[in-house]
Design a protein around this nucleic acid. Sequence first.
DNA 1: AACGATATTGAGAATTATTCGCGACAGCCG
DNA 2: CGGCTGTCGCGAATAATTCTCAATATCGTT
Lengths: 142, 142
Amino acid sequence: MHELEDLKDAGLKVTLPRIKVLEVFRSAKTRHLSAEEVYHRLAAQQADIGLATVYRVLTQLEEASMLARNTFNAGKAVYELNEGKHHDHLICLDCGRTEEFNDPTIEKRQKVVAESFGYALRDHQLALYGYCPDCAAKRAKG
Amino acid sequence: MHELEDLKDAGLKVTLPRIKVLEVFRSAKTRHLSAEEVYHRLAAQQADIGLATVYRVLTQLEEASMLARNTFNAGKAVYELNEGKHHDHLICLDCGRTEEFNDPTIEKRQKVVAESFGYALRDHQLALYGYCPDCAAKRAKG
DNA sequence: AACGATATTGAGAATTATTCGCGACAGCCG
DNA sequence: CGGCTGTCGCGAATAATTCTCAATATCGTT
């Protein structure tokens, strides 16, 4: 439970909503959850936590580097536990299944590109979209 | 004006809103424009085109591959003329200035990564964020 | 050049995702 | 255990985008 320490280190009080939200992520099969999804899961387990609070907590946990935020190509943000190791995503256009990957070559080139423009690279977002093996097969027939 | 032909090829009628929206992009200094920005520019030149129409036209022109859509990390979409050559973006976190680049190595690795997961790559989105030379200098002092 | 089937538009209401404002309440330092 | 303050829940407020529908414009056909 050193997560409670992480909260304190971020200057956040250890409150029920924050603990519960982290629990939801720890016990979720799906890695990426939207605010609405987190809210529903909390409601399902009788935790009476408002949607506005969920949004606030997600933002705070992201600022505390405990969660990572992604918007992919859609109109809503999803969060995932930040377990230290950075990674990018490969997303199936049909079923939404996502794979995580980290390609050192790509990472390296990004830095090179930024430097070639005189920029100090701070962050980046890379998402690959395609069809997963299963969906590709389904599409092949129709 | 082969753009009018492009419209027809996409099964779209050649209408004033569509022509005007394309004009806005062709004559804009800033490459990336949001729906709201396009709407205001049209209003400024007395073209009485509704915001809903702007949204519809942008979507259609994107489907016709005449515009490319990007969401970057923010809550709203921006569009730019699609001039055939694909590119990714490098964006300044301070002033919003954007640079376009295309790195063959990165493109190649993306395909390799997707294939290693058995995915058929269809699209991707890569945005690098950092500080441009000017803003980096400003930040250095304070 | 007018006709009419059909695609398109404008205006505002409706949705969706997220944030704000504020009175009530709960952590936490002493 | 007693506040000082950070937090919470709720509903209203925003922001971005889409939908509804009656009015209108486009374009292939006369």
